[in-house]
Design a protein around this nucleic acid. Structure first.
Length: 171
DNA sequence: CATCCAGTATATA
DNA sequence: TATATACTGGATG
């Protein structure tokens, strides 16, 4: 597959923690980004937006806000996860099974997908997760409930876990 | 707590 | 194909 010009629509999501950026393709939510900076402009031009994307964005916004509040999202938009190996998809799917307030270890996730030794690979899959929050990669702690690391910024992991009243150990 | 080694998947050259 | 890397885990000092 070589360069497929996808019509990506980027729409900001305003939250109490900042402006998230949601990218949609014609298949669904393709990527979700943490607030990069102060996000000065919030154009949110809904001109060339299709109806589908408008609906998806509503669901995404609701889901993000719910998660930031420490609750489980009621509904999720279709995720366009064509990018990603079978292994990664298995990992992401396993992450979605973690209930709010619950935490799992990378070893547990690895065992769940049938690769109990691929703990490190699981970490890599989490880091490659294009849709954080919706796929609760932040609920995955290292062994012994250590906070571990987080590609999007350790700060987010701590914040989200705190929102869900999850307990974790400092490394 | 700091270091080192083990075993797996992915990215890049 | 070879090498480096990753949101690890376990053993060791």
């Amino acid at each position: 597959m070589s360069s497929a010009p996808q019509t990506m629509t980027r729409i900001p999501i305003e939250t109490t923690e900042g402006i998230f950026m949601a990218s949609y393709s014609d298949k669904g939510l393709c990527r979700l980004e943490f607030p990069s900076s102060k996000a000065p402009n919030v154009s949110s031009e809904t001109k060339g937006m299709s109806e589908s994307i408008s609906i998806w964005h509503g669901q995404t916004s609701q889901a993000v806000l719910a998660i930031l509040a420490g609750k489980a999202p009621e509904k999720l938009p279709p995720l366009d996860l064509r990018v990603g190996t079978d292994f990664q998809k298995r990992v992401w799917h396993a992450l979605c099974q973690i209930a709010p307030g619950e935490t799992r270890s990378y070893a547990e996730i690895a065992a769940t997908i049938g690769k109990p030794k691929a703990t490190r690979a699981v970490g890599g899959a989490c880091g490659a997760n294009p849709v954080p929050l919706l796929v609760p990669c932040h609920r995955v702690l290292a062994a012994n409930q250590k906070i571990g690391g987080f590609s999007g910024g350790l700060q987010w992991k701590r914040l989200l876990l705190g929102r869900e009243r999850s307990v974790f150990t400092m490394s």
